[in-house]
Design a protein around this nucleic acid. Sequence first.
RNA 1: GCGCCCAUAGCUCAAUUGGAUAGAGCAACAGCCUUCUAAGCUGUAGGUUAGUGGUUCGAGUCCACUUGGGCGUACCA
Length: 542
Amino acid sequence: MKRYLHSLFDKASSRLDYLKDLTLHFEIPPNNDFGDLSCNAALLLSKKLKRNPRTLAAEILENLEIDKNIIYKTEIAGPGFINFFYTPAFVTGIIAEVLEKGDNYGRSNKFEGKRANVEFVSANPTGPLTVGHGRNAVCGDTVANLLEWVGYKVDREYYFNNAGRQMRVLGDSVRLRYLELLGEEVQFPDEYYQGEYIKDIAEEIKNEFGASLKNEPAEGKFKIKAEQEIFADIEKSLISIGIKFDLFFNENLLYSDKKIESLLGRFKEKNLSYEKDGAVWLKLSELGNEQDKVIVKSTGEPTYRLPDIAYHITKFERNYDLIIDLFGSDHNATYPDVVAGLQALGYDTSKMKVLIHQFVTIVENGEIVKMSTRKANYITLDELVDEAKADAVRYFFNMRNISSHMNFDLALAKKQSDENPVFYLQYAHARICSILKMVSEQNLVASTANLHLLSTDVEIQLIKKLHQFSEEILNAALQYEIHHICVYLEELAAIFHKFYTFCRILGTEKDLAEARLALIGAVKIVIKNGLKILGVNAPDKM
RNA sequence: GCGCCCAUAGCUCAAUUGGAUAGAGCAACAGCCUUCUAAGCUGUAGGUUAGUGGUUCGAGUCCACUUGGGCGUACCA
């Protein structure tokens, strides 16, 4: 519908010059009395043209060639809003459209032919995924889904590093636990990985190799085994919430393919780096950032910046139209350096979008639980899924704006099933399925022949809500804000539940019953499609 | 100190990105099941949108300052 109105304004702009470079904005008014869509163009223009907004609105209206079959009424309201009212024929026509498009209703081809890379999770294999990773994982996967719904071909990518100091410490942690199991006295340093999973891995090694690894170095079998085990667990955790990656990118590849080396050369060649105190520095202060930063330590080892930049260059070389990075807020200081470096080398960083999600704070008995993988003080994603099931966990993370800090009480998480609105949505779907099952035994079939019989407020509201779905998706995708889908679905489900209470199907006159069947069939499609984007099941029965 | 994020009902959060009377869930209170699933519906109560100023037709939303919180501020990632 918005597209139709845009086209009307486009035509009118040939007569009204001031409409030409105006970005139009249509929105759904807060109140039914104000119509179905509202436009504030006159208000915006009044400032620029120094004219009364209401007379401007009247002038615009006169120049719109409105199809009376689609919009039966327009009005100028308040300070100068132009309100549009849909005809009943247009409204009921929505149902047929939903039914016809089915599983594809809500998809758009706006970004057809474009390719996107969404990088998320990217946790190094040093321990199980925590609740914090869970938020990242769910949000990343949902953003990817959303992009697919607007036409992108999406690669979900996981970047990891299995070299370096962290991994040495991991290997040595396992080695010490192994020696402990063999009955040796060992000093287990505080800064080593304290988690129980380290002991489990040591146990497995002991079962496989007996005492034969007494003199094995930490970076040998210990590290390798730990990495394998942990990675397998990570993948299992991800699959348990329905996430599968297309690509795993190992940081090592950047070294073995000489990407780091050549990048260093390019910085030097462009005079963007220099040596000081035995280290190599990147001239970030000349690129608009606060201060210069080290890219190669005096030990000869690069800092994270160099591989990160090299890694992103590979994304540009792989020709993505959109490159998304999803980080937790603890990384908020790192990406500007990477972006500045890329920009200096001439890459089009406007293709990049960095999404930062805020932390999930776990509160237990009124106190905040500080999470640390190293100190083994964390709640794992697996524990959360055990307590609250995958659908509830996915919905829980999807339903909030990623920029908002999330609090949750662990005690509450355990009874989360009662409070999570996901069940409200699933229940609506299950109720529809139940009706459809029941009518199949009667002599009733969904029919679009008599949709004009759908005339109560709640029915009209429900249909109009269905119409908003595609625009909600597009809007959410353009802003990478997935929680809008949840808000929309909850509103839709609320109207449906009201409909369910007031408008019966069984025992109603045949034509009306069949029209209502068509309506709930359409509702079912939209709920199912919406939940699909969120990665949540739509059960037939509850 | 500096940078990013945040502050909305008792609690957890929305608010169409500057729009018309700030909305949901949970908790509280009062109702609704002999008819398609009560994991539902109806109603009541709950707000100086942290504070102070500013910008304009119009501010929860933008700007400045203040207060309070989270995350950073490494030759860790």
